[in-house]
Design a binder for these strands. Structure first.
Length: 109
DNA sequence: CTCTTGACTGAGG
DNA sequence: GCCTCAGCCAAGA
């Protein structure tokens, strides 16, 4: 085997699947866990390939808790619906009580 | 190899 | 608190 290109992406998918139910994390947190704190954008970029996978991308938001990636979902409010379905309160595309439900892989793991 | 794009983040005004 | 600018890194053309 020679995994070369999917190294970074694969790790992102892995960590994303580890996000507990009812919790959320930020791109930077995942990037930091991967050892590339400055590659937060790559995490989001990797999420483009999350379509069709078991990756709960809706649990991944930016550090402000804003649903920046909602436009990448099928519907306009699909991402919010999924989050609310897990007991997460979302108002104006922004997660409420972010500090309470924030999940940091670098700390939790 | 060079240039562009991007689901980000932090610093400054 | 809000807006703008710059930095960072990887993948695709």
């Amino acid at each position: 085997m020679k995994p070369k290109t999917l190294n970074f992406f694969d790790k992102v998918y892995e960590v994303a699947r580890l996000i507990p139910f009812g919790r959320v994390t930020s791109y930077g947190a995942i990037a930091n866990y991967l050892g590339a704190k400055r590659s937060a954008r790559m995490v989001g970029y990797a999420m483009n390939g999350s379509g069709g996978k078991d990756v709960p991308a809706h649990r991944v938001v930016n550090r402000k808790g804003l649903l920046t990636g909602k436009h990448h979902f099928d519907g306009t409010n699909l991402m919010q619906q999924l989050l609310e379905s897990e007991g997460i309160r979302v108002v104006n595309n922004q997660i409420q009580d972010l500090d309470a439900i924030f999940w940091d892989p670098a700390k939790e793991l």
